[in-house]
């Protein structure tokens, strides 16, 4: 069997209104210089990014949801397998902030109960066009018990941190669960070893 090149694989979803910058968050901004015709026409399904956290190598599989999708069309199948969700609004667009409530309800209805969530107030570089204060973002996050930060995909503020913090929260949960399963796991390991010994 091929050797596994990582310790954990976490599936993450980016959701939020159209135009808030979901796709941009997954893209290292650079004057649009490399945007190739072919790829931008067919679109990207997901990305794999690798990070290291506490000595563990973690692969993030990140799904960007398409712009036209609205909360009422995003249902259970969309959220299937997602362990983390980044819910994005645009600090210069009040409507996108108001819709955070609707997105949250949609997540509660359709996503896995213990999915890790994080709200991102994106485009924080657009200070002069700001409509949503940072306090408003913090407030709504607190009400829902969700992590929050402001980001800028354009000037690369908090983008790495958003992914690392979300992954870190999932890692805590996963490792906690594994520790609880240790007793059964040891049993399984032993059986596997026996089987291996027999066949070799």
């Amino acid at each position: 069997m091929a050797k596994k090149s990582y310790d954990f694989l976490f599936k993450l979803l980016i959701i939020g209104d159209s135009g808030v910058g979901k796709t941009s968050i997954l893209f290292r901004f650079s004057d649009d210089a490399f945007n190739t015709t072919f790829i931008s026409t067919i679109g990207i399904d997901f990305k794999i990014k690798t990070i290291e956290l506490r000595g563990k190598k973690i692969k993030l599989q990140i799904w960007d949801t398409a712009g036209q999708e609205r909360f009422h069309t995003i249902t259970t199948s969309y959220y299937r397998g997602a362990m983390g969700i980044l819910l994005v609004y645009d600090i210069s667009d009040m409507k996108s902030f108001e819709n955070v409530m609707k997105w949250t309800r949609n997540i509660n209805e359709h996503a896995n109960e213990d999915v890790e969530r994080m709200i991102l107030g994106n485009k924080c570089d657009k200070e002069s066009e700001r409509m949503v204060t940072k306090e408003m973002g913090e407030q709504i996050a607190r009400e829902h018990g969700i992590r929050f930060m402001e980001t800028s995909a354009k000037t690369n503020i908090n983008i790495e941190k958003a992914f690392t913090d979300l992954a870190s929260a999932i890692l805590d949960k996963t490792v906690g669960r594994e520790a609880m399963d240790t007793s059964t796991r040891i049993d399984i390991n032993r059986k596997t070893e026996e089987r291996l010994n027999r066949c070799c």
């Binding site: 190739t36 794999i48 692969k59 599989q61």
Partner: peptide
């Protein structure tokens, strides 16, 4: 052997039975 073997990569949507690989950061491709 599979997409999880990559350190960083982007996978396009399907077109005519194929998906295409891109850079995860700058999205150049295929």
């Amino acid at each position: 052997r599979n997409v999880y073997t990559f350190e960083n990569v982007g996978i396009s949507k399907a077109k005519e039975g194929k998906k295409y690989l891109t850079c995860a950061d700058c999205e150049i491709g295929p």
